[in-house]
Nucleic acid binder design. Structure first.
Lengths: 359, 359
DNA sequence: GTTTATTGCACAATCGATCACGCATCAATG
DNA sequence: CATTGATGCGTGATCGATTGTGCAATAAAC
């Protein structure tokens, strides 16, 4: 290959000369930084690039290359710190081995555990995982998806995406299957927690723990628009109905997930309320942060008197007191479901898998 | 380009015919999934691939392409959901725009905040961030670095790496500069917290808060081998020395970071000790998790009686009680330092930047 | 009307790895 | 000695985007 001077062959001699000096200087400067390619190794081993490639990517037996040459090439590769150029490999093979995931945030145990488990399992399955967090920004979600497409991801996992179907529409024409995690979508298969059952049980638990009092209960956090919040509210209501209590609209504060919003919503509620609630269902650890802060500010003792159930787990939050119950979403099982769907490879049949959370 | 049949041109006619049918079937099946390329767009626009490329990557003015043709191409690209093939682009440009980071874990606020901030700033600087967590496994650290090299990263940030210098040795021959974050290395510039000063002040604080008692203090968590732990121990000792106390070896439990290890180490200490310590310096939130769990198990009241200083921050841990102090490492400032070093582009001069943590 | 400048674009080489073909060499068989 | 088969490896096209170069066509200048 690859005579870098070939297209200047017709230049006047003097010009050629200068150019050659320039090239040589550049080569000198690059000596230690330029990456070794299979062509370099081929030259060193006195063989061809195709052979080097076959040796290094493992199918040299198929190509009937001698053990001796193979070891020679491998040794040279080690010596020179050869690293495969993935871009070239991907371009030729038309298969990147990359699996992408978008996630709203890293800064709580649920999502960071998702990211970490995803990476581990993806690697175990032979993929190269790329995770990107989209800061709960719908625009960024799409941009991130587009970028992932540009990098030729083979799958895209949309975790807690605000509009997973739009991402699907972006990926489908490119032949890239998507999968929804945590929040379901209508156009691709989904793996989510069994929010209803989890919320139902959690509500039962806090109602039982607060049974000696009767000042009522509260649901804090989340967005009414999203599926998970809806299901959890349904579980919350039904657990009340079971013991003959009807939940009113005023008891539902779906104010968003952000901690400040939960804090603000709770504060206004408490100001208007005659008495503080006996039990609270908090829709995420992020919201819980706001709730506990808010209670602390208002009245140090208050926190210890309200029974709290939180749909999500955090080790320190769990240590906050005996009156606080947490359900932990089963990330391991959810991610296993994700990868078994990927391995199955059937992307036509849409499924929704609901994984029971751990109480 | 790119007649996909060209090298079968000499086959017998019948064979050619069958092959063509096969190709056509494949084309039909691919229709909706095959990615659009600049060649497709060129054909549709009645122009050349080079022109399409120039239009879409923005230097069409330099190439003197008419506004009219440019908009035509752009419209076609939109219609057909064209996505750039980054592998091809990178291969040709020999510049990936990818910036990599390895991080030990995601599951605590410090590292997850690092990952999140890194992504945000990398994107703002025009890079594509790839973050990978290496589970504190030295082997995986190297494998991850090698993989990143294969993906042609332009920089590699090593966060909390057990052996950043080995990663540097891997990257240097490939011309990829590295940078150490959180834990320093000897072969590349480093951005770290000012561990000594932070530990000194934190120790002062817990000693003052526990001053009415005299049962002594304890240092829990971390590894004596790593720089951060050494510096924090030094700060811990000096803050004691300042008020005339000498710290003995028995007071230092550098048992590793894992929560179970901290828990175990503390339990054995408490078993042998005459009295529990008045103050404890805990080296990370992970270790704190073990410490608090251990105290809880032993004696519910114990936790409220020991003054704890933790070198790291977590919102719920901070809410655990009034007797617990946390220093928060200044991730924003640290990451700004990282990116300003990258933008400077001077990788010869080795520097270590120490960022004061926030008390 | 010829020369020069400018505009607008096509062409083809190139990045590094992969893989379908095919060519040499040597041993074994008839 | 000719034929067949196996062994071992080189050749060249290819993936999609980028970019240096060159060639028309039109406009401007003389």
């Amino acid at each position: 290959m690859h005579n870098r001077l070939c297209y200047v062959a017709q230049l006047p001699t003097k010009c050629q000369y200068l150019l050659e000096i320039l090239m040589r200087m550049r080569a000198l400067a690059d000596q230690n930084t330029k990456k070794t390619t299979i062509y370099d190794l081929a030259q060193l081993a006195g063989t061809s690039a195709g052979t080097v490639s076959a040796v290094l990517n493992g199918n040299w037996k198929k190509r009937r290359i001698s053990e001796k040459l193979a070891t020679k090439v491998r040794n040279l590769a080690d010596e020179h710190g050869y690293a495969l150029n993935m871009q070239a490999s991907t371009l030729r093979k038309e298969k990147s081995g990359i699996i992408g995931m978008v996630v709203p945030m890293y800064d709580n145990r649920y999502f960071s555990s998702i990211a970490q488990t995803f990476e581990k399992m993806a690697r175990a399955a032979g993929y190269f995982p790329i995770v990107t967090c989209t800061q709960r920004d719908p625009e960024l979600e799409l941009t991130a998806a587009r970028t992932m497409l540009a990098y030729q991801v083979e799958y895209l996992i949309c975790t807690g995406a605000t509009d997973p179907d739009k991402i699907h529409d972006l990926c489908a024409p490119a032949g890239v299957p998507t999968l929804n995690l945590d929040l379901p979508g209508k156009k691709a298969s989904s793996v989510i927690s069994n929010n209803y059952a989890g919320a139902f049980k959690l509500t039962q638990k806090i109602l039982a723990a607060a049974s000696e009092r009767s000042q009522g209960s509260l649901f804090v956090g989340g967005r009414e628009a999203d599926h998970n919040t809806q299901e959890r509210i349904r579980g919350f209501r039904d657990a009340h109905a079971e013991i003959g209590i009807t939940v009113t609209e005023g008891q539902i504060l779906a104010c968003g997930y952000a901690s400040e919003k939960a804090s603000a919503a709770l504060s206004t509620f408490l100001k208007d309320a005659v008495e503080p609630p006996a039990a609270m269902f908090v829709n995420s650890t992020i919201s819980l942060e706001g709730v506990v802060t808010s209670l602390r500010e208002k009245d140090r003792a208050l926190q210890d008197n309200i029974v709290i159930g939180c749909f999500d787990w955090d080790p320190f939050a769990a240590l906050l007191g005996d009156h606080i119950f947490m359900v932990r979403q089963d990330v391991e099982t959810m991610m296993n479901a994700v990868f078994s769907m990927i391995n199955e490879g059937n992307h036509d049949e849409l499924r929704t898998i609901e994984v029971p959370p751990i109480l």
